[in-house]
Amino acid sequence: MDETGKELVLALYDYQEKSPREVTMKKGDILTLLNSTNKDWWKVEVNDRQGFVPAAYVKKL
C-alpha cells in the first residue's frame, strides 16, 4: 500500500495497450490497483492514466 492506503501492484512484464481501455506498463513499474474483481483484467492507474492490464502480468505488493 502507498501512503494513501491504496493497494499497489508490480508490473512483472512489459505490456503495450491494445485498446483505449488499457494502459501501457513496463516491467518494474509500480501501479495503483483500482479494481481486481475480474480474474483476468485488473484496473490500475499509472502515470495519471486509468485502464486495464492483464492480471497475470502484475503482482500485488
Rank of each mutant, 00 (worst) to 15 (best):
S36Y: 07
I30Q: 04
S19T: 12
K43C: 14
I30Y: 06
D2M: 14
K43L: 15
T37N: 12
Y57T: 06
W42V: 06
S36A: 12
S36H: 09
L33D: 00
E7F: 11
D14H: 06
Q50W: 08
M1N: 13
P54T: 01
V58T: 04
T24M: 04
Q16V: 13
Y57F: 12
N47M: 12
Q50A: 11
T24S: 15
L10D: 01
M1T: 13
G28L: 02
D29N: 07
E17Q: 13
V58I: 08
F52H: 05
V23E: 00
K39R: 11
K18P: 04
Q50F: 07
L34E: 02
E7V: 15
S36F: 07
Y13Q: 12
Q50L: 06
K27G: 05
S36M: 09
V23C: 09
K27E: 06
L31P: 02
Q16N: 14
E3R: 11
E22R: 04
G28Y: 05
R21F: 13
L33E: 00
V23D: 00
E7S: 11
K39P: 15
L31S: 02
F52M: 08
E17H: 08
E45D: 06
K6P: 13
M25V: 08
W41G: 00
S19E: 08
G5I: 12
V53C: 03
Y15W: 10
Y13D: 06
A11N: 01
R21Q: 12
Y57N: 05
D40N: 13
R21K: 11
N35Q: 10
E45T: 07
V46Y: 12
N35L: 09
V46M: 15
K43Y: 15
S19C: 10
N47E: 12
D48E: 10
M1P: 13
G28Q: 02
Q16T: 14
K18I: 07
N35R: 07
N35Y: 07
W41L: 03
L12M: 09
K18T: 11
L31G: 11
T24L: 02
L61W: 08
V53G: 00
Y57I: 06
N47L: 12
N35W: 07
K27L: 05
M25H: 00
T24Y: 04
N38L: 08
M1E: 13
P54C: 04
M25L: 08
E17C: 12
L61G: 03
Y13N: 07
E3P: 14
V46P: 00
N38M: 09
F52Y: 15
Q50E: 09
T32K: 12
L34Y: 04
E7H: 11
N47R: 13
K26M: 09
A56I: 09
K18S: 10
D29P: 00
A56L: 10
N47G: 15
N47K: 12
V23L: 15
R49I: 07
P54G: 02
A56W: 09
A55R: 12
Q16I: 15
K39F: 08
E7I: 15
E22N: 04
L10S: 04
K43E: 13
K59Q: 14
E45S: 10
Q16Y: 14
L12Q: 04
E45Q: 14
G51T: 02
K60A: 07
W42N: 01
G51Y: 04
P20W: 09
A55K: 06
K60V: 11
K59E: 10
V9P: 00
F52S: 03
V53Q: 00
V53D: 01
T32L: 14
A11Y: 01
I30E: 03
K39A: 13
L61V: 10
D48R: 09
D2N: 13
L34Q: 03
N47Q: 11
K60W: 07
T4M: 12
G5L: 12
A11R: 01
L10M: 14
F52K: 02
T24G: 08
L12C: 08
A11E: 00
A55N: 02
T4N: 13
M1I: 13
E17N: 07
G5P: 15
L61P: 03
K6R: 14
T37M: 10
R49Q: 07
I30T: 06
A56G: 10
R49A: 06
G51N: 01
E7M: 13
D2A: 14
V44F: 00
L8Y: 15
Q50N: 07
D29Y: 06
W41P: 00
T32E: 08
G28W: 06
D48S: 11
K43I: 13
D29Q: 15
K60C: 10
P20E: 11
Y57L: 12
T4S: 14
W41V: 02
M25W: 02
D14K: 03
L12A: 04
L31E: 00
T24A: 06
N47I: 10
L8A: 06
T24Q: 04
L61E: 04
Y15S: 00
E3M: 13
K26R: 13
K26N: 08
L8N: 05
D40L: 13
T37F: 09
V58Q: 00
L33S: 02
E22S: 06
G51R: 02
Y13H: 10
V44I: 07
V46T: 15
P54W: 03
R49P: 01
D29G: 04
R21V: 11
T24W: 04
P54S: 02
N38W: 07
D40A: 10
G28C: 10
K6N: 10
N38A: 08
E45R: 10
Q50T: 12
D40F: 15
I30W: 05
P20R: 08
M1S: 13
S19N: 12
Y13M: 11
P20K: 09
L12R: 05
T24D: 03
G51D: 01
Y13V: 10
K39Y: 08
L31C: 10
D40C: 14
L8R: 10
V44R: 00
G28R: 03
Y57A: 10
K43G: 05
L12D: 02
K26V: 09
Y15L: 01
E45H: 06
A56F: 07
D14A: 07
D29A: 08
L12T: 04
K27A: 12
G51M: 05
S19L: 07
G28S: 03
Y15G: 01
S36T: 09
G28I: 01
M25Q: 01
A55G: 04
L12H: 03
V9W: 08
E3D: 13
D40I: 15
E17M: 13
L33P: 00
G51S: 02
F52D: 04
A11K: 01
K59A: 11
K60R: 14
D2R: 09
S19V: 04
M1V: 14
K39H: 11
Q16M: 12
V46R: 15
P20C: 09
Q50R: 12
